[in-house]
Nucleic acid binder design. Structure first.
Lengths: 225, 225
DNA sequence: ATATATTTGCGTATAAAATACACATAATGA
DNA sequence: TCATTATGTGTATTTTATACGCAAATATAT
């Protein structure tokens, strides 16, 4: 048997959510193959780092952002997925607030940029497939796990949470029933403050009850919106 | 940067279900490390085969069984998981009827054997962790996807299906409500035959309606038993 | 042959959850 | 002060899940 000559890489699909928009962080490749094309950030795993360390490092090197929790998505190993030779890639994904990060390209990336999920450029390698699988997973995830804590302001009106869900689910939900459900989970603490943005009745501000929130995440609620 | 020297392997967690027992297929390692110890079947990926080809090949080589659908489970990449050096392993899992296969050990395996899931031997590498994750996944899977077609006889009494579920879930279910639910899914065709095994009223035989069954699998029903 | 044990087959009542739906309130701006 | 806009709330209906018990058809023991 010939010696194994397979390279191992990691890729990070980082979604950004903000005010009704979902975006994904891409880099423009500085070197061949696919030089000048957009791609999901990622790169080769070093010999002595864990996969998680690798994906966080690559993401940081190429885009300047540092994310401490990325979830493993899937491993892509089609023998012809990389023109340079056999490369198997372990894809991770995460969801963040784009404005919480200053992005700047470096190392293998000529540029790093958020793209609206509906206006994606052509992607390198099999990255379009990876992204499609990540989107599916994101949609599934939201129905069995509470999401939001990391994506909203510390204090937020209920409508922000509602918008988050309609955006991620890609469809309308009944405002009253949604509120009842969330309130029933006891995951929100009502504050004494109100916020008024433009016309309309001012909204009460809420914050997440961290303890309860992480407890729910752990339990893995089923959350039929 | 040093050249990457990471090896890539695949592992197959194959569960067997039969008459109220869940087992898992293990091999006894012929060579060091962990020589003589039990392990999940698996091995290194060849340069030109896909990951799925690799895992099916290794499983066949080591245990003699040929399974065409294994689902990707998770990728394990802890730098110290293998004493020989850095080995990243992509684990797959599947569920079969043990008696449908003739197992025989070869290549790296000194022996291949089904173990009851409650009477597992000590395992090599991080295989215990892999197995635990596979078990969790199996339990989750059964609640959002119909399972059974591949695990029961072509014609079977309802009680066989019931036993399958109680076994995989590890708890009792209400016989009447379970039957109502399954019948409501229209996934079974009632036959004109009956079967009598020992004492008790003879049972009507059913078969799965293949078309409907695979449609449900595809749709991904949520199936609160 | 009769009684007993065993397994299958089935229906109904109750509780819980999901859904559908409309109007009052508190602000802004013309 | 009137129109507009966004927020906040309750109730009725439908659907789904759960709880629960008894009759039918067979084998086995007496």
């Amino acid at each position: 048997m010939n010696k194994q000559s397979i390279k191992l890489s990691v890729d990070a699909v980082v979604f950004g959510y903000e005010e009704g928009n979902i975006s994904v962080l891409l880099i423009k490749r500085k070197y061949a193959p696919y030089k000048g094309k957009w791609a999901i950030p990622g790169g080769f795993v070093l010999n002595n780092e864990s996969l998680e360390e690798a994906v966080e490092r690559e993401l940081h090197e190429e885009t300047g952002i540092k994310i401490s929790y990325l979830e493993q998505l899937y491993t892509f190993g089609n023998p012809s997925r990389d023109p340079r030779g056999r490369v198997v890639s372990i894809a991770y994904f995460g969801l963040v607030r784009p404005n919480a990060f200053q992005i700047f390209a470096s190392t293998d990336a000529e540029q790093a940029q958020w793209f609206d999920i509906k206006e994606l450029p052509e992607l390198s390698f099999d990255h379009r497939e990876i992204l499609d699988i990540a989107i599916k997973r994101l949609q599934g995830k939201i129905t069995y796990e509470p999401i939001g804590f990391e994506l909203l302001d510390k204090k937020f009106p209920f409508s922000d949470l509602e918008k988050l869900y309609t955006t991620l689910l890609g469809r309308d939900i009944d405002r009253r029933n949604f509120r009842k459900k969330i309130v029933g989970l006891n995951v929100l603490d009502e504050l004494d403050e109100k916020i008024s943005k433009g016309s309309g009745r001012p909204a009460i501000l809420f914050k997440f009850n961290q303890k309860r929130y992480f407890q729910l995440k752990k339990e893995g609620i089923i959350f039929e919106i």
